[in-house]
Amino acid sequence: MEQSNSTLTINRLPVRTWNRLKLNDATVVLPDAVKPYEYFEELPEGVDRVKGKSIGPMSDIKIATGFGDDLDGYINDTGVMISGYITEDGREYDKPLKQKYVYADTAEGIINALDLTISDGSSLTVVQEVDGHTSQALLRNICRIGKNASLTLIQIQKLTGNTEFYNDIGVYAEDGGEFNLIQIILGAGSSYYGLKCALAGTGSKLSTNIAYSVDSDRRLDMNYVADHTGKRTESDISVRGVLKGNAKKLFRGSIDFHKGCAGAKGSEIENVLLIDDTVTNQTIPLILCDEEDVEGAHGATIGRIDESLLFYMRSRGISEEQAYALMEQAQIDSVINLIEEGILEHESIE
């Protein structure tokens, strides 16, 4: 029997640019036959898990993701069951919720759709490690962050082979809610990453620290959107990466200040180390502004290792080749170092 597929448009820029640049979005083909992957999980005591639905007082809020509506429709059509999680009000969890996805080749596509509710005043760290290889795998997180609640999501992706990996996140933060995202993107043949964070509550915050390494003929397509609607909201999107060989990377980073988000601040920065001239590096930083009383900043540092830095390293006996290897590692390590000691297993990011 022939396998049926769906063609989707994902990772759309909030405002379109010239079509001929082919940067506005990504068109992908996903299989209709899918199943969820049975992941390993360490669930801290006091976090509730409910199969099949999102739970809690925020469960009715419609939350957009970085991939967009097409993906939402696709997940509904596949009938894949959502896994809902909810924390207790006011509780700060010492132990993280850990999940490990080690894919093995399957004929079907893999989808895991999670719905995390961080109840008012509580804080939780969620660690998701993705490893192994398969044809196509999708992981989607919907995060509902309550008043003065905080979620730190740490995602580490080390997929091998030609795996196509789709990682989509949608966040909604109420007053004083905080979402911290740490992503380490090291593998997969093609990766698509999306994030949309609705900073709806007064003083809600988004912080991302992302590191990627893309080599050979692999590609990475990213779309990160901070949607400021609440007053005095803050977003800080920070991305570091290394590109080698024939790698292709497209980063879309948008800070969208909507009318009424007075006092909001947003910044985004990407720092890319280009190892070879054969890489394709595309970066689109966007700041959209419909409110006067805001501060927005964006920047990018893109290039090879500075000659003076290389000379300094060589004056300490480090060869050019070793210097590049060290700097590549440094790009990733500077983000890994943000992960609290003891949260990851020792062999996690070797």
Binding site: L309, R314, A330
Partner: peptide, 24 residues
């Protein structure tokens, strides 16, 4: 000769303006 080879032979230069290296 290349700088790293000279350094390996035992020559050291202390820089007037040492370089910052984020991540290392």
């Amino acid at each position: 000769e290349a700088t790293d080879k000279i350094a390996k032979k035992g020559v050291f230069l202390s820089f007037q303006n040492p370089i910052e290296i984020p991540g290392i």
